[in-house]
Design a protein around this nucleic acid. Structure first.
Lengths: 138, 138
DNA sequence: ATGAGTGCAAATAGTTTGCAAGCTG
DNA sequence: CAGCTTGCAAACTATTTGCACTCAT
C-alpha cells in the first residue's frame, strides 16, 4: 500500500471517519489511477465484489468532504475524483475521443481567489477541465 | 430584440440552421439572463408554451455547435449555457448557496492551449467554474 | 417539396435516498 | 455496544432518443 493511501487513511481517522475494507480498496484504486475517475469507473477498477456501486458513491463523497480527494467535472458533467495529497492541486487535459489524459500543473487558483474576494466571496473553490484531441486521435 | 439575438440569428442562418419561433424565444431568454442557465432554467424563463423542454435541450445543443452560446458546468455537473457576451470568452463566480453569479474575465485559455499543444493536442477547449459563498450568504 | 425542427412518450445515465443488517472504534 | 457503514431496491434529476407530424427555406 502506497504512502498516498496510508496518509489518506490517517486523515480519515483524524476526521472521525471509519476505515473499512471497502474504503481501503477505493483509495487503492484511486492511488493507482493515472487520471481522475468517475464513481462508476472507480467502482469497475475495484477487485470483484469489493463493494457496492452505491458505496463507492458514498465513500467518494465522504472522501471529498474529508479533503482526501479532489473533485472535478468532465465536459459532459460527470463528476470525477482523484487523490489529492502529495500531488497537490492540479488539472487534467483529456482527449475527447479516447479519454487519455495528461496532467497539467498550470493553475490560477490564487488569482481566482483574489478576484473572488474582491467580490466579497469566501470559501472559494474552482473546477477546471481541459479537453482536446490527442495526437493519436487527431 | 437585442443585437445579441439578431447576431445569433444571423449566425444560425449562416450555418444552415433554421430559425423558428422556439429558437428565437430561447435566444431571447438567454439574452435577458444575467447568468448562465441550465436547459430547464432557460425553459422556465420562456413565455408559457413557447416550446417543449426537449426542444430547449436540442436547441441549446445546436446553438453550442453553431458557436452562438458557450457551455459551462455547475459544481454539481449540470450543464449551463449563455450567449457569448459580445464574444468575450469568460467565466463565472457562483454562490454555492443562493446561486447568484458574477462575471470573471480572468482566463488562461492561451496558456492552456500552449501547454496542450506541447502534448500534441489539438482543438483545445476548457471548462472552468468558480464557486464560493457570496457576501450575503456568508 | 423536402429535410430540418418539434412535441410527446419513453428510455438512459448518473447519482441519491430509505431502511435493515453488519462491522469499526 | 453505539452508531457509522454497507447492500439492495427504488427513487430521482438531468438529459437523450424514437417516431410521426409540422414548418422554414
Amino acid at each position: 500500500m502506497g504512502d498516498m493511501v496510508m496518509h489518506s487513511i490517517e486523515t480519515l481517522r483524524a476526521k472521525g471517519l471509519r476505515v473499512t475494507e471497502q474504503r481501503r480498496a477505493i483509495l487503492e484504486a484511486l492511488a493507482n489511477a493515472d487520471s481522475p475517475k468517475s464513481a462508476e469507473e472507480t467502482f469497475s477498477a475495484l477487485p470483484a465484489d469489493s463493494c457496492d456501486l452505491v458505496t463507492a458513491y458514498r465513500c467518494l463523497e465522504q472522501f471529498e468532504k474529508a479533503g482526501v480527494v479532489e473533485r472535478g467535472v468532465r465536459e459532459n458533467g460527470t463528476k470525477v475524483y482523484c487523490l489529492g495529497h502529495g500531488h497537490g492541486h492540479h488539472h487534467h487535459l483529456t482527449c475527447r475521443k479516447c479519454g487519455s489524459t495528461e496532467r497539467i500543473d498550470l493553475c490560477m487558483g490564487d488569482e481566482l481567489e483574489k478576484v473572488a474576494e474582491g467580490f466579497g466571496y469566501t470559501e472559494v473553490s474552482h473546477v477546471m477541465e481541459v479537453f482536446g484531441l490527442c495526437p493519436s486521435c487527431t
